Each structure stands twice: as C-alpha cells, then as structure tokens.
Simulated assay, not measured.
Amino acid sequence: MLKSDKDTSAKSLRRGGGLEHWAERHLRYLMLAPTVLILLALTIFPSIYMFYAAVHRISPNPDLPWEFVGVGNFARLLSDPQFHVALRNTVVFTLVAVALEFLLGLGLALLLDRFIRRLSFLKTVLMIPMMLPPIAVAITWKLIYEPQFGVLNEIMFLLGLPVQAWAGDVNLAMFSIIVADVWQWTPFVFLLMLAGLASLPVEPYEAAALDGASSWRQFWDLTLPFLKPVIAIALLLRVMDALRLFDLVFILTGGGPADRTKVLSLYIYQVAYRFADPGYAAAISLFVLFVTIVLSTWFMKRMRLAE
C-alpha cells in the first residue's frame, strides 16, 4: 500500500514537472498568445469577410439574401469610369507627393546633419506636423485655403496677386491636397533619413576626402548607396500610406471639384455608404490591397538586386 502511494506520488511529480518544464520552454509563446489571438480576430476575420463580400451582390435591404456573382464585381472595375478616374488621381497623387516628400526630407536631413547639428530644437519643430492627427491637419488646411478669410489668400492679396479658390478650383485642387500631405509627412521621411545619416561610417568619407573627392561626389558614391535600405523603407511606407489617402480629400474637397481629387479610398467609401453597394466596395478594396502587395514585393526585390 505504501509502495503504491509512493508510485502514484512519483508519477504525479513527474507529470507536474513535465508540465512545468513544457510551460517554461514555451513561456514566450504563451505570453504572446493573447495578443496573437486578438490580432487574428482583428485581421483574419475581416479579411475573410471582405473576400466573401467581394463575390456577392449585397442588397441594402438586410432581409434579402446575398447573391453570388463570382468575379462579377471585379469585372465591373474594367468598365467603371468613376473607378478609372479615382485610380488615375491616386496614381498622380502618390507619385508627386511621395517624390516631393522624399526630396524635401532628404534635403532637410542633409542640411541639419552637416550644417546645423547643434540646433536640435529645429528637429522637434520639423516633426510637429507628423505628430498631429490627420483630421486636425485637414481642418487646419481647410481654413488656410478658405477663399474669403483664409490666410493664404490674405498673403496673396498683400502681395498684389490674384486670390484663388485653391481647394475649389479644378486646376488647383489636387495641388492643394499634395501641398497639405507634403507638409504633414515630409517630417516622417526627414526623420528616417536623419537616422540613416547618423548611422553612416566615418572612415569611407575620410578616405574620400584624402583622395580629393568633392562633397557632391561623396554624396553620389557614398551617402546614397549607404542610405539605400533606409530610402527603400521610407519610400515603401509612404507609397503604401499614399495609396489609402482619405482624410485630406474627404475634408478639403470631398473628391471634387469635378472629381479632380476623387481617390480610391474615397470612392470605396462612396460606393459602400452612399451607393449602398458593399460587395463592389469590397472588390475595389481587394484591388487596392493586391496593388499594394505587388508594388511592395516588386520594390523590395528591385532594391535587393541593386545592392
């Protein structure tokens, strides 16, 4: 009897010790499990639901069943003129805005890194726009562009120049959106470029200076190649963010005038909520997701090949 009790106790200890050992070995996974489950619930389920909705025609009447249409919603993209307008506007905005943000961000980073390193408060000032909520930025620029009492037209009047409608002009609306976006997100590129410059090795520049290389030559032959990974990350993040622009357009122009600033994110919103066609809106969303993944993959492969 005593031997049996001892055997049972030993088995319990071994079982308990094995469980404790397993928990210790997998502690990191156990601690991450709740976060992973929450992320899966917030990403996997909506993604599956979006795929399911994209192949159905969904009626605004919740009592009517969903009608399976297969690739019908995706086929509509080819013949939808409003989608083509939104796609063109999105491409124009992304190319121009990201290019300006990169050039200005890199230029400011080089300026602060070489000439005014001691004025650290300027870095804080330059990063303020990036830290503001997009809605606040959009409302601020809406007041700046106001035709009657906006500060921009006040400056134009004082300079003797004709006042403009800015966000309400068909020729200036997209330009106004780009200026506001560049103002807000150039600090993001500037911060990444400044961090990249701070991590550059000193020895190659000392050797280049001894060889008589000019500052311009050092920039092309040393700085740009060293910064290539940082530049790739900055451009990739900004392109991905520009493709889903919504706040500025929604508040400043609403997609007008004459659809000159209607971008894909705004069109998805209009299709889903104004035209009550969530199935087609899901198809457009999947198209944007697909384009973003393809561009990101292609861009990263190009950067690896260029190294």
Rank of each mutant, 00 (worst) to 15 (best):
D5A: 15
D7K: 15
T8H: 10
K11A: 15
K11W: 14
L27Q: 10
L27A: 11
Y29P: 00
L30E: 04
L30Y: 01
M31I: 15
A33E: 00
I38V: 15
L40V: 12
L42H: 04
T43I: 15
F45L: 14
P46W: 04
I48P: 02
Y49W: 11
Y52C: 03
V55D: 00
I58W: 10
D63R: 14
L64S: 11
P65W: 07
G70I: 06
V71C: 11
L78I: 13
L78D: 08
F83K: 06
H84D: 07
R88T: 12
R88P: 03
V91M: 09
V91P: 05
A97W: 02
A99H: 05
L100I: 12
E101G: 06
L103Q: 10
G105C: 11
L110P: 01
L112F: 08
S120H: 12
L122D: 03
K123W: 02
T124C: 09
M127W: 00
M130R: 12
L132R: 03
P134E: 13
A138Y: 01
E146K: 01
E146F: 10
P147N: 07
P147M: 11
P147F: 06
Q148R: 14
F149M: 11
V151E: 04
N153R: 07
I155S: 06
M156C: 11
Q164Y: 09
G168K: 09
D169N: 15
D169C: 03
L172Q: 11
A173K: 05
S176N: 06
A180Q: 05
A180P: 00
D181R: 05
V182H: 04
V189C: 11
V189P: 02
L194S: 07
S199Q: 14
E206R: 13
E206L: 10
E206S: 10
E206Q: 14
A207H: 09
D211A: 14
G212I: 10
A213H: 08
S214W: 08
R217S: 14
R217E: 13
F219A: 12
T223K: 01
L227I: 00
K228A: 15
P229F: 02
A232R: 08
A232Y: 04
I233D: 08
A234D: 02
A234M: 03
L236D: 01
V239N: 08
R244V: 00
L245W: 02
L245A: 09
V249W: 03
F250L: 09
I251F: 10
P257R: 06
R260K: 13
T261A: 05
K262W: 09
V263C: 07
S265G: 10
R274I: 09
F275H: 14
A276S: 14
D277H: 07
Y280R: 00
A281I: 08
A282R: 08
A283P: 07
I284W: 07
F287R: 06
V288Y: 01
V291M: 09
T292P: 02
I293M: 10
W298R: 11
W298T: 13
K301L: 13
R302M: 13
R304N: 07
